[in-house]
Amino acid sequence: MAIQTKPRKFLNDPADVVKESLAGLAAAHGDLLRYDRAAQIIVCKDAPRAGKVALVSGGGSGHEPLHGGFVGRGMLDAACPGEVFTSPVPDQMLAATKAVDGGAGVVHIVKNYTGDVLNFKMAAEDAADDGIRVASVVIDDDVAVQDSLYTAGRRGVGATVLAEKIAGAAAEKGASLDKVADTVKRVNERARSFGVALSSCVPPASGKPIFELPEGEIELGIGIHGEPGRRRAALGSASEVVDVMVEAVISDLKARAGSQVLAFVNGMGGTPQLELYLLYGEVDRKLRAAGVVPVRNLVGSYITSLEMAGASLTVLQLDDELTELWDAPVHTPALRWGV
């Protein structure tokens, strides 16, 4: 048995990390949201809002600011955080759904992981039993996973953030349940992502890195749970890495030449903004060279994997409606403009 070393993390009891972090989020942003400790959910302060379609998302913790940091005006009405990298349970999703339903129905935004899909499915059935209309949409934008009979299907990654923002704006404008759900679907269908990692990450409960990456190597095609990617390669220059990311995303997106896109360069938690903007510069140039025009962008760490060093690229093919919804005001702990 190896000697247990203390992880280099700010913890009291590792078993309480999620609850204590959520309490801190509520302490910092009491003007926007509240933390229901018993149900372990984050709820928009003025929910439920009569007549407004509500948006609920959730998933394992460790991806902050996703999802709790996106609760507020113009985005999510509630978030259900599970344990670190573990899907929340149906009880949380049901409690969140009941807390935010304003009579117009609730959209569940579900990232495509077996656990998330199964638990949200059970919660949606329970909510229907309670007379709440729920529309569930699964996000699966990760091109690193072959979507075939031989996998659990593509993972939900960066497009989740964009879908929550854009569909949240649609709900804010008074769109119907079907329309809001359809907006989530459209974002998912028009977005593709690809991630890379330069290090693993350390879940608080185990205190050990999920995998070891030798110096000078890069994991290509990673998800957001510290899991290894599809293959490992020698770490090249930033320009060479972006070549791989842009090629993976663009070849799958099959956007028409001249298409207007939103380019989202996301940090995995351990990569500084210095490097993320360097990556964005490369992405912007290479997308234009590939024939698409980044007319909107988002650069920062929004869907993370604890302290993993790495980045993902999401490209969303815009149209007028999606652009307008993206530009609409949003006021949450992690995304804020137009207010």
Binding site: G60, V89, P90, G115
Partner: peptide
């Protein structure tokens, strides 16, 4: 188990 585990193993 459904109410306390989460992940895939909870529902399964």
């Amino acid at each position: 188990l459904v109410s306390s585990v989460g992940g895939a193993s909870g529902p399964l």
